[in-house]
Design a protein around this nucleic acid. Structure first.
Ligand SMILES: NC(=O)c1ccc[n+]([C@@H]2O[C@H](COP(=O)([O-])OP(=O)(O)OC[C@H]3O[C@@H](n4cnc5c(N)ncnc54)[C@H](O)[C@@H]3O)[C@@H](O)[C@H]2O)c1
Ligand SMILES: NC(=O)c1ccc[n+]([C@@H]2O[C@H](COP(=O)([O-])OP(=O)(O)OC[C@H]3O[C@@H](n4cnc5c(N)ncnc54)[C@H](O)[C@@H]3O)[C@@H](O)[C@H]2O)c1
Lengths: 213, 213
DNA sequence: ATACAATTGTGAAATTAATCACGACGTTTA
DNA sequence: TAAACGTCGTGATTAATTTCACAATTGTAT
């Protein structure tokens, strides 16, 4: 689809740019240079220009980028006008935090339902999101849910994943340590918080930064 | 320090390998091949062999790797025997979830204190971690805390960061959307959950996977 | 013993990403 | 209007990471 030439590394930075451009617009700024952007989002300015250039010539030489134009462009590119429905599975510590937050700011995603196995949680709403029993997964998911967020205990992850995929979910954001197996057309992003923390500690001990690095 | 030749991409995978090897040992397995590991952690087997090879010849041709030996090796490499103290700032939705979890399993990190500005939370403990008022940050941090986890509102992020750094913190795990500025010898890892979700949605729409990819 | 099967470790190739560096061109100023 | 300046877009380069593919070596079976 679309522009299959856009590097994945670039695609991952797009939401970041989008969010910052939004901030700029709220501040009433009308123009911005790759240098300013660079300082704000901590990405090299050449990388930013390169990223933008995959979408054509969006800026003006000697001037920079027009905030409104750029924002409008990214809004279309990131499909900000259509909402992707998301289901969250596992309303525990982490799941509850996500439901309260619900990624609503500047966002094209919405958690529309949640599931848990614990009867105490069923029937409640958190942040306007209804919580159903996991047995009702098949019944409540109506084919519009394209993404699942997994915040269940890790030993449940594979089973739930299989059920999600059978019911039309195309992408999974997996917060459990389990590495799940999915059909080849399903996309999984792992966010492994314990690994992130351990990796940070490893870097501290083994790659000490010098004052100039 | 140590082996500055280990690629960062490799270093990030080490905790993952470590965790899986632990599981294997608990299951009583004594040997494992890069192929088995590959299927479990979803990393190409050649990449795993390459990763291991930076540490020398850890395996045996025709046999694979000895689980116990490998685990012992990684335990040393990842400094599993010494604990790194961590402070968490911002006991809100996300912060509370992290305190309950506290990354205790197989881990060399421990959240030893938390801070918040909301008087209602002060004095409590969550998961055995005391919660202090943010004004006491300087007083309670004793120089042993090397890592800070930031789960405050984004506009507070920069100010808190500066204070943490002044009091000896060397690494920051930043969950706020704010991109913080730090001296060059401080390491920051951003985990931007909203960006992760948006990026997943972008990939779904623009890089549909085929059945064979 | 010997043959067979399995699996490592690693050069080399391929892929992906980041950075340099500069010509071209628009803006601003006087 | 013209000169000075700022900033983009990008070819070329460099760096980082992944993957291929196979000789070497070991374990296992007969
Ligand atoms: N909380 C953290 O800070 C943290 C950090 C790193 C990783 N994780 C991982 O995230 C996951 C969730 O962590 P948590 O702290 O929120 O755990 P939790 O135990 O608080 O929450 C898990 C929830 O899943 C529900 N559940 C159990 N089985 C289920 C099923 N079959 N179907 C639906 N719901 C089910 C439970 O009732 C519970 O509410 C775990 O895999 C954990 O390893 C959490
Ligand atoms: N909850 C999520 O799912 C989620 C997802 C993505 C990003 N985030 C980001 O993570 C951060 C925390 O999110 P949250 O949902 O937990 O928010 P929250 O409002 O629930 O928690 C923030 C906590 O920080 C405390 N706080 C405020 N100012 C402080 C200060 N100066 N010093 C110490 N503590 C202070 C507040 O009292 C509150 O308890 C935010 O920046 C948010 O954007 C959260």
């Amino acid at each position: 689809m679309d522009q299959n030439k856009i590097p994945q590394a670039t695609a991952k930075r797009l939401p970041l740019y989008y969010r910052f451009l939004n901030n700029l617009q709220h501040q009433g700024k009308t123009r911005v240079s790759s240098k300013e952007l660079s300082e704000a989002v901590k990405v090299d300015s050449a990388t930013i220009r390169r990223d933008f250039s995959y979408f054509g010539a969006l800026g003006k030489k000697g001037y920079g980028y027009n905030v409104e134009y750029l924002l409008g462009f990214f809004r279309k590119t990131l499909d900000q006008d259509e909402t992707t429905e998301v289901a969250l599975i596992g309303v525990g510590n982490l799941g509850t935090a996500f439901l309260h937050y619900n990624f609503t700011k500047n966002n094209n995603t919405k958690i529309v339902m949640a599931f848990d196995a614990n009867p105490q949680r069923i029937g409640d709403e958190i942040g306007g999101v209804p919580i159903y029993h996991i047995d009702e997964l098949e019944e409540k998911m109506n084919g519009n849910v394209r993404v699942g967020i997994l915040t269940v205990p890790s030993k449940e992850a594979q089973g739930i994943t299989t059920r999600l995929v059978e019911h039309g979910v195309e992408g999974i954001l997996n917060f459990t340590p389990a590495r799940i197996t999915v059909p080849s057309h399903i996309r999984v992003h792992h966010i492994d918080l314990a690994v992130e923390l351990q990796a940070l500690v490893y870097f501290l001990k083994h790659y000490p930064l010098s004052k100039s690095e």
